[in-house]
Design a protein around this nucleic acid. Structure first.
Length: 504
DNA sequence: AACCACTACAACCGCAGATCT
DNA sequence: GAGATCTGCGGTTGTAGTGGT
């Protein structure tokens, strides 16, 4: 057979790029004689200068018999949506259920469909698609079995979780008269998710405990910071100062990517793995019918393999899409490179790690702001499982609060803006100067005002918290928002409704 | 006609598990 | 048992085609 010269290249330089019909003919001929498999020998014995992987792909996706060509039929489209709701991004598994279709075809179809629907503001899944496993691919369970959560890594996943048939609520935990109180707020879109919240699927509010918990600390920090809108204070100044962000990259990515990057913020990943001591959490499969499998829970620890290459500037852009801006100074760390996730990467001690972390902070950010945000993020990341070691690390040693005071709850008090109320006892006052200062030799406090750096700080915002809020006997805040007129603006309806207090 | 944005699709890459030597 | 190789999978990128301005 005469073959075009371009098929043959110098030995060792295998051809890449589109396949020609002549190459296809060679491959078909070879497979018909020798059968599938042994793909690396194709190049050796057929004279085709393609690597084995390329041959296999070409055969599987284009040349093998019984392949369906052309657009998906409505039935096939429906099948794909249903299969995706069952399997998630398991393209090969889906392809096995769709005769004549390849995983690549299905993957391409799904990705373009997702983009199209999200651009149109439509849910990823039609409402009549039954909820299966996809929205709960990554689920976490606490050791005591009480808390359940789903890590939602992207806008699409979140959209899935919102549209699979179960209404969702945001949950705020607070304490009232010594009893823990959960406040639930209905949410209908990602923009309804408030900060420091837990999203739950409410199978009726009374059934929250068995619902699907979608803990969304990262998403909220990216898209739902209470710290203001996209004005000069929203952090965009900080983003624009990053030199390694190309405008091309800036405008190329989809919101999904931005969300992932936010979620996988290197700082958060690093801190989380520091807390858990492991690069990855236990991932608990969620079965739509039977709930979570019993496995230990290890707090939030984003996967160590997450990519962090999206420029932060994109986050600012996407933040506009979903309501408000990212303002945390820690979010100004250049994410175009990946921080090592293991604490060991920064030395043997956690303080080395934190020091490195703080050194990464933008140099123009006030030390106070960095510290405040770090504490906030530690709280979110630990999800109530902060170890004594970590608490001590950030400056709250057991000796300061005694056996009967929960450092986590106390820190939450700080995050909710009551640092002044409790600082003499155990709160941020302890964290602030003596404890964390030695960790920060290279971070210079500056004279920049808060408005020059980011948005208002937690305590600025929560100065608006109603005066009825006080601390209980354990220095834990008793949070209550009795009516909408005293709720801080970022907590106010109609964006995520009126609180409903339920006893736990 | 030129440019641009968008879509659909093909192909590549890195990784991980399976299998072979 | 260990290393090498093969295979399959999922994510990502590149590009041709199309339609709008």
């Amino acid at each position: 057979m005469d073959l075009p010269e371009e098929i043959f290249v110098d030995a060792g330089n295998l051809k890449k790029g589109p396949w020609t019909s002549a190459e296809d003919a060679i491959l078909v001929s070879y497979v018909s004689k020798h059968g599938e498999g042994n793909w690396n020998s194709v190049q050796k014995h057929s004279g085709l200068f393609r690597c084995g992987k390329s041959c296999r792909l070409r055969w599987a996706n284009h040349l093998r018999p019984n392949l369906k060509k052309g657009a998906f039929s409505p039935d096939e489209e429906r099948n794909i949506v249903e299969l995706h709701s069952k399997f998630g991004n398991k393209w090969a598994r889906m392809a096995a259920q769709l005769p004549g279709r390849t995983d690549n075809e299905i993957k391409n179809y799904w990705n373009t469909r997702i983009k199209r629907r999200m651009r149109a503001g439509l849910p990823v899944y039609p409402l009549d698609i039954p909820k299966c496993a996809s929205a709960a691919q990554y689920c976490y369970k606490q050791e005591d079995g009480r808390k359940m959560g789903t890590r939602v890594d992207s806008e699409s996943e979140f959209a899935s979780s919102l549209t699979l048939g179960e209404p969702l609520s945001c949950q705020l935990n607070s304490l009232h008269g010594g009893h823990q109180v959960r406040s639930f707020y209905p949410i209908t879109s990602i923009s309804d998710v408030p900060p420091l919240s837990t999203v739950v699927a409410n199978e009726g509010l009374g059934g929250v405990g068995k619902g699907i918990g979608s803990l969304l600390p990262n998403i909220k920090q990216v898209c739902h910071s209470p710290y203001g809108e996209t004005d000069s204070r929203d952090g965009s100044v900080l983003f624009s100062q990053l030199s390694d962000v190309s405008s091309e990259t800036l405008h190329a990515g989809s919101y999904t990517k931005a969300s992932q990057t936010c979620t996988h913020n290197s700082v958060r990943s690093a801190i989380a793995s520091l807390f858990t001591g492991e690069p990855d959490p236990f991932i608990v499969p969620y079965d739509g019918a039977n709930g979570f499998l019993d496995m230990p829970f290890h707090s939030f620890a984003p996967s160590a393999s997450l990519k962090l290459e999206l420029p932060l500037s994109q986050l600012a852009e996407s933040a506009g899409t979903c309501g408000s801006a990212i303002t945390s100074p820690l979010m100004s760390l250049p994410l175009s490179r990946q921080l090592p996730l293991e604490a060991d990467s920064f030395g043997s001690s956690a303080s080395d790690f934190l020091e490195a972390l703080m050194k990464e902070a933008h140099p123009t950010i006030g030390l106070d702001q960095v510290r405040t945000d770090l504490i906030d993020q530690l709280l979110v990341l630990t999800s109530g499982n902060m170890s004594t070691e970590v608490a001590a690390l950030i400056g709250i040693d057991k000796g300061r609060w005694g056996d009967d005071i929960n450092p986590v709850a106390t820190l939450e008090a700080c995050a909710f803006g009551h640092r002044e109320d409790v600082s003499q006892n155990c709160c941020i006052g302890c964290v602030a100067e003596p404890a964390i200062q030695p960790l920060l030799p290279s971070v210079e406090a500056t004279s920049l005002s808060a408005s020059q750096v980011a948005g208002p700080r937690v305590d600025d915002i929560l100065a608006e918290v109603p005066s009825g809020v006080c601390m209980d006997e354990n220095y834990v805040p008793v949070l209550d928002f009795p009516s909408s007129d005293v709720v801080p603006e970022w907590l106010s309806p109609p964006s995520w409704g009126y609180p409903m207090h339920l006893p736990c």
